[in-house]
């Protein structure tokens, strides 16, 4: 199977799964932005994405996608370390045009996975999982498992969580600024002209998506429970 056996194939798997995850992040960011305008609207989405078969199927598909992306990243990293040889350079100078993110994708990926575990604990565990396992009540907060808005107020009222989430968002931003154009390059949809275009499009797109997450987190951190017109 060339998607597993060849170096280009393995990179294609990384690219397709990565692009699909960027698409998911886009939906997630759009969903979060609703919380800035309407508590009811946001909770309606939470209910729609709760313990329904299609939402569970989507969650499983997403988990498979993340698992594939992560497992392939581990395989590629191990193969690349082996290809580098046993001896490392005593002196290394980084060329100017080499992005920091491009050389630290795996480390950034580890930070993202750790942030994901925290995120699943804060939200998925208290929402979708609680709907099945705790009779529709969140485990920690005393809120309804479909009250996503309340869950955000509760989570971001803790400054430590807010800082951790902002660090997580920064790691995702760095990861995606390289990941986006790199995926296009791997799929062969690049060239001398499109390389710069994809980089520009990717940077703008990823920055906008991540800004949505940051704005929502900061909104709930600073005025989620006091100055919201929808409270």
């Amino acid at each position: 199977m060339w998607l597993i056996n060849s170096s280009v194939g393995r990179k294609v798997v990384m690219s397709v799964s990565g692009l699909a995850l960027i698409l998911f992040l886009t939906f997630h960011a759009c969903m979060n932005v609703v919380a800035l305008f309407s508590r009811d609207g946001y909770n309606m989405i939470c209910e729609f994405l709760g313990s329904n078969w299609y939402a569970v199927a989507g969650t499983v598909a997403l988990a498979v996608l993340i698992a594939i992306h992560f497992v392939f990243a581990v395989i590629l990293t191990l193969q690349n370390r082996k290809a580098r040889g046993a001896n490392r350079y005593a002196v290394s100078a980084k060329p100017d045009r080499v992005e920091w993110a491009s050389q630290n994708m795996f480390v950034l990926g580890i930070i993202i996975v750790l942030g994901l575990v925290l995120h699943l604990y804060n939200f998925w565990f208290n929402m979708m999982f609680a709907e099945f396992a705790n009779g529709g009540m969140a485990f920690a907060t005393g809120l309804s498992a479909t009250d996503g808005y309340g869950m955000m107020q509760y989570t971001f009222s803790c400054p430590v969580y807010t800082v951790l989430y902002l660090v997580w968002f920064a790691a995702i931003w760095f990861h995606l600024t390289h990941g986006f154009w790199s995926a296009m390059q791997t799929m062969g949809w690049s060239g001398k002209t499109w390389f710069n275009r994809w980089r520009c499009i990717g940077n703008i797109y990823v920055t906008l998506v991540m800004l949505c997450f940051v704005v929502v987190a900061l909104y709930f951190a600073f005025c989620g429970s006091c100055c919201s017109a929808t409270c």
Partner: peptide, 15 residues
């Protein structure tokens, strides 16, 4: 032959 997988760091074209 044991060469690694390209991750598009661009170090190659820089040198």
């Amino acid at each position: 032959l044991g060469f690694g997988n390209c991750t598009n760091t661009r170090a190659c074209e820089a040198v």
